[in-house]
Amino acid sequence: MDRFKGTGSYILSDALREIVNASIVLRRPLLLKGEPGTGKTELAQVIAEDLKLRLIRWNIKSTTKASDGLYVYDTVQRLNDSRFHDKDVSDIKQYIKLGKLGEALCAQEQVVLLIDEIDKADLEFPNDLLFELDQMSFDIVETGEHFKASHRPIVVITSNSEKELPDAFLRRCLFHYIEFPDPEMMERIAKVHFPDLKQNLLTQIVAKFYFIRQRHELRKRPSTSELLDWIQAILAGGITEGELNKRLPFLGVLLKTEEDVARVAVH
C-alpha cells in the first residue's frame, strides 16, 4: 500500500499527513473538522490524486437519508411502466439506482469516498451508516443481492459541527481538527497559488490579513480563500508595498458584511 505524501498544490501539516496514513492502515473513516476554508473537502481530493484513486463525492443535504446513499428503488418509474407494456417490469434490477456509498462499495478498484458535511443531515443519519461503514457491505432487499467492497474505500468525512455526531459513530472514526494556518504556513499556501509574488509584499499582505482576522468583533472572519482573492485583487490593482502600508485596499474582498468593513476601515 502506498503511503499518502501530499501533492505540491496542497500544503498540509505533518500531523495531518500522519493521521491520513493512520486512517488508511487502521481502516477507519477519517473525520475532519475545522473552520470554513481550511481545506477539509480538498483533502479528499488530494488523497485521491496522490494515491491515483477515483474520488466519489457524496454531498450531504438536510434531507439526505442514509439508505439513499446505498441505493434508490424507483418504484414510481416501475409503477408507471406497468401501465404501458413496453418494458419488463418484473426485472426489478433496472429500477435500482446505486447511491454514492453504494457506488463506492461496488467499485472494482479501491476508491476514496468523501462524505461531505455530514452534520447537515438528520441526527440519526451517521448511526444509520455504522453497519455499512464497518462491514463495507450492503444488501439490496428488493433483489436479494449482496455487495461487499472488494477493496475497502478510504473514507473521509467532513463536518462543520452544526450538529453533534452520535458517540457510537465517533468511536469508529479517527478525528482531526484542522487548525487555521499560522502566518508561516499561510505564506507557503499563498506561494503555491502565486509563485511570482514578491516575498516582501507577501509578508506584508499576510501580516495585514492576520491583523484584521484577530479582531474579535468581526461577524465573519476572513479565511484562506478570501486571502487568496485579496492577493489576486492587490496584484491586479498593481498596489505596491508603500500603498499597502498606508491603507487597506479592496476590503470588500476580505470582509463580507458592511458592518465589518466599516469597523475595520475606521481604524
Partner: peptide, 22 residues
Amino acid sequence: QNLIDSSLTRFYYIARSILVKS
C-alpha cells in the same frame, strides 16, 4: 502496526486522532 514509528510527536497526533473526538 508501527504507525507511531518510535516518534513521540507522531504518537501525540495519532493517539489524539484515535482517542479524542472533539
